Amino acid sequence: MNPLVESPRAIVTGASGFIGSHLLGRLSREGWQIAVIARTASASDLASNPAGPKVYTYTGQTSEVVEAVAEFRPQVVFHLGSLFLAQHDAAQIAPLISSNILFGTQLLEAMRLAKATALVNTGTAWQNFSGAVYNPVNLYAATKQAFEDILIYYVQTAGIKAITLRLFDTYGPADTRRKLLALLIDSLKSGEPMGMSLGDQVLDLTHVDDVCTAFLSAANLLLNHEEPRHEVYAVSSEERHTLRELVAIFEEIAGKRLQITFGARPYRDREVMEPWQGTRLPGWHAKISLREGMRRLLLAENLFSPRS
């Protein structure tokens, strides 16, 4: 019998983030019983929805996480909570360590004590600069790798079954992050010029609906296996384009040229020019093409007519 048929229980961290919020909706629609562990501000927002998940507030204490996992008894933990910083300063080191290493370790210890064994973890392709097995683009990526190293200890000693999904660029509706497609939509609306780098870096964009499917597929794999393990998979659309090509595709679909000046900005330090080629999650592939995803975004903004 497929375990996912029996209304499983899941704890989600990072539920207030872009991907986490979409995953929360997907789990709810598919009949999962859901709880979230969230910091005070996010917990208040999540708890304001009477039809929403059970909310456990986290203020940094290990005991809070232990009590949440023990009480809710999840079959799967989806760990998306993290602090993303493309570049950091000295004052941000403590928050990075706390969010990306300490909290995850507290979660693993809580799983050990509650004998909860299935974890779907979130990594980043930025752990693999220049295609290396491990070469972090920035300190954020280094903290993600550090957590994976701690995870291996719990796999070996606590029987944890884990899959880490290393994500590339993601996009989709209700995205408040200042990512590429949001910037292009703003430029389309305003007509204002925008400066970019030379645009030769290759990008891999995956729609959030496909990303959520990957998380569910990973959970299903874990629930159908008994042995402790940690496996790493790439969640890649396998549809890769340079920044220049992406802008051209967007302009084609929107039916309008944007005022983009390539070369107006330098590449960032350790710019990823060619994305890592990782092993794809078994049984999963992206279904929403980049063009279709762009059409959906433009349609939602009333910037695209299906007849055009």
Rank of each mutant, 00 (worst) to 15 (best):
S190T: 14
S237Q: 06
L180K: 09
L205T: 00
L181T: 04
L246R: 05
A162F: 11
L205Y: 14
H230G: 06
G255K: 00
A158Q: 01
G159E: 07
I288H: 03
R178L: 06
G263L: 01
W284D: 12
A248G: 03
Y267Q: 13
R240W: 14
A162Q: 00
V272Y: 11
L290A: 04
L188V: 04
G172V: 10
V155Y: 00
E192F: 08
T279V: 14
L258R: 02
D209Y: 10
N220V: 12
L198V: 12
E239W: 13
P193N: 07
K189M: 10
G278V: 03
P275W: 15
P193K: 13
L222K: 01
N224F: 02
Q156C: 05
L165N: 06
L205A: 00
R177N: 05
Y153N: 15
T213M: 00
R177Y: 00
I249K: 06
P228K: 03
K161W: 10
V202L: 06
P173Q: 09
G283W: 03
N220F: 00
S237N: 05
L243P: 11
L181C: 03
L188C: 07
E238R: 13
H230L: 12
P266L: 04
Q259G: 11
I288V: 14
T170C: 10
A214F: 12
L203M: 14
L223S: 08
R229W: 00
A182Q: 15
R270L: 14
P173S: 15
L188W: 07
L205N: 08
E274F: 14
I163W: 03
P228I: 10
T164I: 05
L281V: 00
S190M: 07
T206L: 00
L246N: 11
G199D: 06
R265K: 12
G172H: 05
D186N: 15
T242Q: 06
M194R: 11
P228T: 09
S217L: 01
E271H: 10
E252H: 02
L216R: 12
S289W: 13
W284G: 02
D175A: 11
L203Q: 14
